[in-house]
Simulated assay, not measured.
Amino acid sequence: MMNTKKLTLLAAFCGIFLASFSFKADQSDALKKSMEAGKTTYNQVCMACHLDKGQGIANVFPPLAESDYLMKDVERNIENLINGLQGEITVNGKKYNQVMPATGLDDADIANVLNYVMNSFGNKAEKMVTKEQVAKVRADLK
């Protein structure tokens, strides 16, 4: 028979273990919802240049699919969506030098579209982008 101390520790461990699954499920559901909204935004704003599978247009618009540039710096991605991007960049070893205009998207739309592209097309982000994170970057740009 287990003593009370061992039983209490076992119960606490089981509670923490089960709570971690619940947290991951909540986070997973939130990411899924964000990605669904982000896909809509992507189709409306980004797809014309980056195409339906994020492959971009060779030597013109960089790929988002399996993109080292995209996955390297979330804050830079947020800034690029807020302010646009011009000047030479290197993506997956290839140079691109086109203008991407500012998107005009709000904080939630930027977070959602980044969650979509950073978790699609062969990409897998470590963390979910939040609208609060976007708002902080936007405030820091002023």
Rank of each mutant, 00 (worst) to 15 (best):
N97D: 15
K131I: 00
Y69A: 12
C46S: 05
V74P: 03
M128T: 15
N115P: 04
Q133G: 07
Y69L: 11
A58M: 14
G54I: 00
K32R: 11
Q133F: 09
F121M: 01
A102N: 04
D106H: 09
V99L: 15
A102D: 01
V117N: 03
T40I: 05
D107I: 00
D52C: 03
Y69M: 05
V74M: 13
A25S: 11
P62W: 04
M2G: 09
T41G: 01
V129M: 02
N3R: 04
N97L: 06
M128F: 04
A108V: 06
L64T: 09
L141T: 08
E66S: 13
A30L: 15
E79Y: 03
N43C: 08
S20N: 12
I16E: 07
M47D: 05
L141E: 10
A25K: 11
K53N: 12
I110R: 06
T4W: 10
E75S: 10
G56F: 08
D26N: 12
I110S: 08
F61Y: 15
S67M: 13
L51V: 14
K24V: 07
I78V: 10
A58Y: 12
K72P: 01
V74C: 09
A108P: 00
D107Q: 02
N97G: 06
Q55L: 10
A135F: 08
D109W: 00
K53V: 08
T8D: 04
M118K: 11
T8Q: 11
P63R: 13
N43T: 13
A139G: 08
K32N: 11
L10T: 11
N80R: 08
L7D: 01
S120Q: 15
M118T: 09
I57G: 05
D52H: 12
C14D: 01
V117K: 05
F17K: 03
Y116H: 00
Y69G: 02
A12Y: 07
N112R: 00
L10D: 02
T103P: 04
D26E: 07
L7Q: 08
G15C: 13
A11V: 13
G38E: 03
D29H: 09
A102C: 07
E79N: 02
Q133H: 12
L64Q: 07
S28C: 04
K24M: 14
V117F: 02
C46G: 02
E66A: 06
E79I: 01
E36N: 06
V45Y: 02
Y116G: 00
C46N: 09
D26L: 15
D140N: 14
S22E: 10
N43S: 10
V74S: 11
K127H: 14
K39Y: 06
K124T: 13
Q98R: 12
N43E: 15
L85C: 09
E126N: 14
F13M: 06
S34W: 01
Y96T: 08
L51Q: 15
M2H: 08
